[in-house]
Design a protein around this nucleic acid. Structure first.
Length: 136
DNA sequence: GCCAACGTTGGC
DNA sequence: GCCAACGTTGGC
């Protein structure tokens, strides 16, 4: 049973298209204890929504954890970790934050309750609801 | 060990 | 570009 997650990135910095171009991306630079703990809990094969923050404000695609956590040499390797991810597929239709906020099934979604959390768990029912909004 | 100041994130 | 939310830092 894979677990579900959501990770945010500013498309200016690193967007969905950048991940697709790279084929496998290293999710680095996360300097937040809660986000870091979530990354440590990720297992290979877990499914992750890619959310565009600042510009876009929408879930654009799904990626898969391809390598579990290792020290983040771009920040402080004693403190923070990276995971590696591969793009799985793009959603037929990007799901905007505005619509997620309007969906009662998503009222407890971690990124709505705590908007600054950049790596957050998603429950199976939340995952299904977002997938449905994104065209299956 | 408290808490004010400061820095960063991200929605608007 | 602004600023609210919130995490971190550092003076006491």
């Amino acid at each position: 049973m894979p677990q579900y997650w959501l990770m945010k990135s500013e498309p200016d910095e690193y967007g969905w298209d950048d991940l697709v171009a790279e084929k496998e991306g290293t999710w680095d630079g996360v300097k937040n204890a809660q986000a870091s703990n979530n990354m440590k809990a990720m297992k290979k094969g877990d499914q992750v929504f890619f959310y565009h923050s600042r510009q876009g404000l929408e879930v654009v695609g799904i990626m898969e954890v391809s390598e579990e956590h290792s020290p983040d040499v771009t920040t402080d390797p004693d403190r923070w970790v990276v995971v590696k991810v591969k793009p799985a597929r793009k959603l037929d239709k990007a799901v905007p934050l505005k619509e997620m906020k309007q969906n009662p099934k998503l009222k407890d979604l971690a990124i709505i309750r705590q908007f600054r959390l950049s790596v957050a768990p998603v429950t199976e029912s939340e995952w299904d609801a977002i997938l449905e909004m994104g065209g299956g």
